[in-house]
Amino acid sequence: MNKIPRRIITGIQNGKSTIIEDQQVENAVEHLKGLIISDIWNTQQMPASLDWEQRIPNTGFPQTPKNGTYFRYVSIPPDKDLGVEFKAGEPHPMMHQTPTLDYIIILSGELYLIMEEGETLLKPGDIVIQRGTNHVWSNRSDEPCIQLAVLIDAAEAENSKIETLKD
């Protein structure tokens, strides 16, 4: 399995800032062939507590705590390696929705973000603000795509149409 970056956690000891943990992430899981996910950190409340960490199970689809957050590392293999077939004009079998506000950063590789209407190619450095809508990731390249995602528990939109705030 691919190695993912180190997890470094800071804290306070004897009244001074210090590094509490510095090691390889231990909970990387291969949910489907080549789909590697590691749930790095979570918070269980807002405002977030700086005092403790509650280890969370590593799941294919995130289970963001109510009033909490989820920070995950995802390596998405090429579609052809996943064995998922997508036929034009039909819903993608991996289409999903989470009740969260997600901040996603593409670190390496490329990936298509597919919506119910439309899609866009994402490349390293691109940032996605995913606002609780149906979506799927499609890697049509020959290399894995690595993304970091922070998911924040969110209230449902008041209307069925999510709009952009305008000045």
Results as ranks from 00 to 15, higher is better:
7 R>M: 07
8 I>D: 00
13 Q>G: 04
13 Q>W: 01
17 S>K: 02
17 S>A: 15
17 S>H: 11
22 D>Q: 04
23 Q>N: 14
25 V>W: 07
27 N>R: 10
27 N>H: 02
29 V>H: 07
30 E>S: 09
33 K>G: 00
34 G>L: 10
35 L>C: 05
35 L>I: 07
39 D>I: 06
39 D>P: 00
40 I>F: 01
43 T>G: 10
45 Q>F: 01
45 Q>R: 13
47 P>F: 04
50 L>P: 02
51 D>H: 12
53 E>N: 13
60 G>F: 12
61 F>T: 10
62 P>H: 08
63 Q>Y: 00
65 P>Y: 02
68 G>Y: 11
70 Y>S: 08
76 I>W: 00
78 P>Y: 06
79 D>C: 02
81 D>I: 09
82 L>G: 12
86 F>A: 11
90 E>F: 10
93 P>W: 04
95 M>Y: 07
95 M>H: 01
95 M>S: 07
96 H>W: 07
100 T>V: 12
101 L>A: 08
102 D>N: 14
102 D>H: 06
105 I>Q: 11
107 L>F: 10
109 G>K: 06
120 T>I: 14
120 T>K: 14
128 V>E: 04
129 I>D: 03
130 Q>E: 14
135 H>T: 06
138 S>V: 13
138 S>W: 08
141 S>P: 02
142 D>K: 15
142 D>F: 02
144 P>K: 06
145 C>H: 05
146 I>K: 11
147 Q>C: 15
151 L>W: 06
152 I>Q: 09
154 A>S: 15
155 A>Y: 02
158 E>Y: 06
158 E>G: 12
159 N>Q: 11
161 K>R: 06
163 E>Y: 00
165 L>Q: 12
165 L>G: 12
167 D>S: 10
